[in-house]
Write a protein that binds this DNA or RNA. Structure first.
Lengths: 338, 338
DNA sequence: ATGAAAGCGCTAACAT
DNA sequence: ATGTTAGCGCTTTCAT
């Protein structure tokens, strides 16, 4: 493997000249630049990432921190990951996937102190998230996908849950529904301060109140079976409900199954809106689900781009952005029956 | 940030002693070991990953190479990724997610020459996959998830498609079905030499022949809509079919929808087996799908573990392993109707 | 516009 | 069992 010395010798210049040609941090005459490039090509030269990282104190590696609990990633989270990977790659950065839980703070401290990461993107951020402080103390720039309660000095990208819930509720109310139940994530997720669960809950209550309607709410684990139980509970609580808003990609399929089992048609008897859902998943249901389509890979991409800007940039200010989910009307919603 | 020199000074030993305590590559007396550890703790010392990587020529980073075409990752591939990430993390390695397509051979060459990766795991391997030669030329150890046609000197982990198809066919034949159609991935995927598509096709033909049955085969893009068309095509080709084997997680939902739309019940009129599917996805359907459950995260984990063994190990031999999918009978299969 | 040389923080001979 | 030291391959002052 050729080194910078080899290139310098072949091009008859000094190593520093080669380095400056590479980094572009000082003017080089066209003539020498050409010589150097020719030598590089001739030798198939590629800079050694470790050496470069050590000398420059920049690894060109960013971390994607994702808690690896429970049943793995859903389609939405997977899109974050692929979006982030693509963005990093495009910018000439590397993306390391670090499975650090919200509680593995010591692991994270260790990782952050290794000086391997130029920065980090945090997924599955909780309202109170210890990882933020750990990274800040270690001096690792970070961008959140999601938000903590205090976002003052932080960069984040998140879904605009307020607007998403508002649009979903308004869609149903506009169709004439008044008895609407909201199927959230599990009680445990809500208690843990999982942002999407907490924020959509509050937004639902607020929007229903704005319409003068009573907010019915059910929590459900992320599974089809839990969805069936959730429907049971919802129907017990409000036998006359005509619409469901589901925050829970997995539960919603159980809900559809249970509705069919009980002989209730969709959307004839009950309308269903699935929140923060990917089009692919929405198409899997029958009828295809009216859904609030999540920004998907865009969130991951934007988070990485913001992080990289923060790394290069002199800009001290923070990137704070909310992206709405887009209402896509498919076959699972309609006016309330008879 | 404390360096090894700081630790050495505080512990009153030489830097090399600190280094050897860390790497354990030569005997150190208990007394000095304790002194060093105390100093490390006192200073919150963490070795600098770049410096270590440069000096040792080992980055402790492995790459996960995944083509980022089309519609992103399915549940099965996502499980590979999380399994690989967990295994790497457990072993004290880092996992970088590198979105390099099967055609981005120059990008890959660049990546491999940067000496950033100690090794690589290749996902979505095609029967003829140029990435293998590129990595071998660059001297990067690799393990495949999937197989090329010539596996002589390669390590791989793959699904045992032969056995998986055999079990699925036998399950249906055992129930009494004789008119069975196989819904594969797209023609394009087959033509490109996508292993799962090619191998299951061959296995299906072989197993049907073993039963003295005629193999009906349909190709479909990975979408619900394509699944509906596939069912059209299958029914046109064999109006009397009573069972479907689907290799295509997305298409199978379209198939179920179209069956329902045509008033054909599952499994009363038509039995459906979904191949290489995760339990979560199988549970989403109604009725829940009888499926060949993919090994999921185990594949990713095993691949990384084999790679790491290859890195440390003196063992020159290769890890070659096939994992079967497990038949999980749910509600979508039964004896053929009337 | 270019060169010389001092690190970056470690590992791994080569010492004893 | 421990210490000394020469690199690893770059970046970046400090020169000119």
């Amino acid at each position: 493997m050729a080194t910078m010395h080899d290139v310098a010798r072949l091009a008859q210049v000094s190593v520093s000249t080669v380095s400056y040609v590479l980094t572009g941090t000082r003017p080089i005459s066209q003539a020498t630049r050409d010589k150097v490039h020719a030598a590089m090509a001739e030798l198939d030269y590629q800079p050694n990432a470790m050496a470069r990282g050590l000398a420059s104190r920049r690894s060109r590696i960013v971390g994607l921190l994702m808690p690896m609990d429970e049943r793995g990633l859903g389609a939405t989270e997977t899109a974050f990951v692929t979006g982030a990977a693509a963005a990093a790659s495009t910018a000439g950065y590397h993306l390391v996937l670090a499975p650090v839980g919200t509680t593995d703070l010591d692991d994270l401290r260790r990782l952050a102190s290794q000086r391997m990461l130029d920065g980090a993107v945090l997924m599955e951020v909780q309202v109170e998230d210890g990882r933020v402080a750990v990274l800040q103390e270690a001096g690792v720039p970070l961008v959140l996908i999601g938000r903590t309660s205090d976002t003052a000095a932080l960069s984040y990208v998140d879904i605009d849950f307020d607007q998403t819930v508002r649009e979903a509720v308004d869609h149903l109310v506009g169709l004439g529904h008044t008895r609407i139940a909201y199927v959230n994530h599990s009680e445990a997720a809500i208690a843990a301060g999982y942002g999407p669960a907490v924020r959509t809950r509050d937004a639902f209550v607020a929007r229903m109140a704005a319409h003068g309607l009573e907010p019915l709410m059910i929590a459900a684990e992320d599974s089809a079976a839990a969805g069936r139980e959730a429907l049971d509970a919802a129907l017990a609580q409000a036998p006359d409900l005509t619409a469901l808003l589901a925050m829970n990609e997995n539960a919603v399929f159980g809900i559809l199954g249970e509705l069919a089992a009980r002989g209730r048609t969709v959307p004839g008897d009950v309308s269903v809106v699935s929140m923060v859902t990917s089009p692919q998943v929405a198409e899997l249901a029958h009828p295809a689900l009216t859904a609030m389509t999540s920004p998907g890979s865009a969130l991951g991409r934007i988070a990485v781009e913001a992080l990289l800007r923060q790394l290069d940039g002199v800009t001290g200010d923070h990137h704070q952005q909310l992206l709405p989910c887009a209402l896509e009307i498919r076959g699972s919603t309609g006016p309330p029956g008879r």
